Simulated scan of single mutants.
Amino acid sequence: MVANRLLDGGVVPFLGAGVNLCGRPETAHWERGRYLPSGSELASHLATGIGLRYPYGDSSDLLRVSQYVDVSLGNGPLYEALHAVFDADYSPTPVHRTLAAVPALIRARAAGAHCFYPLYITTNYDDALENAFRDAGEEFDLLTYIADGPSSGKFRHTRPDGTSEVILVPNSYTGLTCDERPVIAKIHGAVDRHAEQDDSFVITENHYIEYLSRSDTAQLIPVNILARMHRCNFLFLGYSLSDWNLRVILHRLWGDRGLKYNSWAVQPQPERIEEKAWARRNVELLDMRLEGYTTELDSWLTRALQPATESP
């Protein structure tokens, strides 16, 4: 079911920090330009690796550590440290590669007919997903949340040719659709490796307070993309409901309501309370590792091109 819906453009893959660890050897650690950092590794680096020593107990709490850096040194040094981490050529993970292969499969299935491409949402700051699309020869539109500065709270649309604009009136902006190519939405900002001044990171406690205080975050999203989100299933990858940022996003986009379309979350060994929490939002929990799920999804996507095949 997931594979067929994905090839119809009817599934929104929603990528969290766990995606960046997919395929990484269990004994490996963050290595700049090779292995992307986990949230705790990034927090530990900020706590001790930029000329500052975090004075409190848990230096793996990214939210609190980044807030401490922001208060102690300022937003500029925090952004510089984050840029230094993510301005490197990290290899895309198996999840990124699988998702980047989907547009070509959609075109093959459509056989020249009109088709819809997926919307991909991520809260990760790196550009590994974009690089997977570039490696696959796929164009995409990029939608990036702006966390600071005069355009704070708005999104920037970057086209395949590199031109960009800040979206000032989202409910009338029609320059983004999923009809021509996929859209990647980075709703917590991202590194900009070509223009450091355009870096944007929703990472500190203050950023999340600002995120929560907006009257309706959904109204900041371009109208066509928002409509797409309301008519799709979601596939949550690399997330746990214990993740603070995911709970914030779900609350701002849907409040306490469940999703209107049944959705899925891949999470190994979830706790019982997480199963109940996902179920309240009409999300079926798939108890498996991302590596195994990605392998299965690869297989089902290929087989889904055959009409008689039943997929998971």
Rank of each mutant, 00 (worst) to 15 (best):
D8Y: 01
F14I: 04
T27V: 12
R32S: 12
G33D: 03
G33S: 00
L36W: 04
H45Q: 14
Y54S: 00
G57F: 14
D61E: 14
S66G: 06
Y68A: 05
S72F: 06
N75Q: 12
A81R: 08
T93D: 03
P94C: 09
P94I: 08
R97W: 10
V102W: 00
A104L: 07
A110Y: 08
T122Y: 01
T123N: 06
N124W: 03
N124H: 08
L129G: 06
D135T: 07
E139K: 09
L142N: 04
T144G: 00
A147G: 05
R156Y: 08
H157T: 09
H157F: 04
P160F: 07
D161E: 11
G162W: 09
I167L: 02
G175V: 05
H188V: 01
H188T: 03
D192S: 14
S200K: 01
V202D: 02
E205V: 06
L212N: 14
A218C: 09
L220H: 08
P222D: 09
V223N: 11
L226F: 05
R231P: 01
R231A: 15
L246S: 03
R247G: 08
H251M: 12
W254M: 10
Q269G: 10
E271P: 12
R280Q: 13
G292C: 10
D298F: 04
T309M: 13
E310A: 07
S311T: 08
